[in-house]
């Protein structure tokens, strides 16, 4: 899985926001707000990775139960898929 080309994550005014540039800006003119964990996962998805790799990364970075982390990753991917932001 990989974030679609043209979506950029930036830190502005103490918040993580995703906006579109280039061709992507023609179809996506909104703005996505991410929390810190969301930004952490997004950065990995920018490079492309599997769901398992996301879970492993999340577990090594944050002290969290595996079931909680797994649900979080599932939820995050579901949201991105529904918004059509993944390739």
């Amino acid at each position: 899985m990989k974030i679609k080309k043209g979506l950029v994550l930036r830190e502005v005014a103490d918040s993580f926001v995703v906006v579109a540039v280039g061709e992507m800006a023609k179809t996506f003119n909104g703005m996505i707000n991410l929390n810190e964990t969301g930004a952490f996962l997004w950065r990995r998805l920018e490079k492309g990775c599997t769901k398992e790799e996301l879970l492993t990364a999340l577990l090594s970075e944050y002290e969290v139960e595996e079931s909680v982390a797994s649900a979080h990753v599932d939820n995050f991917i579901k949201g991105l898929t529904e918004a059509n932001l993944l390739d």
Binding site: V8, V21, G22
Partner: peptide
């Protein structure tokens, strides 16, 4: 909104 990355930044 500009479409270039540099302009967006």
């Amino acid at each position: 909104r500009p479409t270039g990355v540099e302009q967006m930044d």
